[in-house]
Nucleic acid binder design. Structure first.
Length: 158
DNA sequence: GCCAACGTTGGC
DNA sequence: GCCAACGTTGGC
């Protein structure tokens, strides 16, 4: 069982959108980065846990917990000419992009990026690494545990 | 809107 | 395979 962090722009798809989705589940489609794809295709397993992170918004940060509910299969939007995720180089025989499915476990209080950065225990977290832009990053068991504890504390002044 | 950092593309 | 040019991400 592994831990992850999944970024989404709330203007595109927010934690509330997930809460409103049928079965509180969705395909994590639209990932067009090879490293992130490889994490989904090669490493994610049903039952893995992930933080849901809001990016490119007023206060970026972790807003919930999800579980991987289905392992990777070809992302349908790569074949859809009307989708902004259409990839002319992808074919059904040789799909290029994959997605897992995630299911909402719970919404949490907002753990902002600045609050995460203020934690010495998280100084090595991949999300916080200089120049990191990956939309899917691994989270260590220690980091996961620490952030779960953080969530129990009241929302800080940061 | 700016811009640092990183990823991708394509000519050679 | 190199690398310049270009595109994207995402915090600020």
């Amino acid at each position: 069982m592994r831990y992850w962090l999944l970024k989404s722009e709330p203007a595109e798809f927010s934690i509330d959108d997930l809460a409103l989705a049928p079965r509180h589940a969705t395909a994590w489609f639209g990932v067009r980065n090879y490293q992130a794809r490889n994490f989904m295709r090669d490493e994610m397993q049903v039952g893995d846990q992930a933080f849901f992170y809001h990016s490119s918004c007023t206060i970026p940060g972790i807003v919930g917990i999800v579980e991987i509910s289905q392992s990777a299969y070809p992302d349908a939007t790569q074949f859809d000419r009307n989708s902004k995720y259409f990839d002319p180089k992808a074919t059904r025989a040789r799909p290029r992009w994959f997605n897992v499915e995630v299911k909402l476990t719970k919404k949490t209080r907002l753990i902002s990026l600045s609050e995460l950065r203020a934690q010495n225990s998280l100084s090595k977290m991949r999300l916080l690494a200089r120049g990191n832009r990956l939309s899917i990053t691994p989270v260590t068991a220690a980091e996961w545990k620490f952030i779960l504890q953080l969530m129990k504390k009241p929302e800080g002044a940061l």
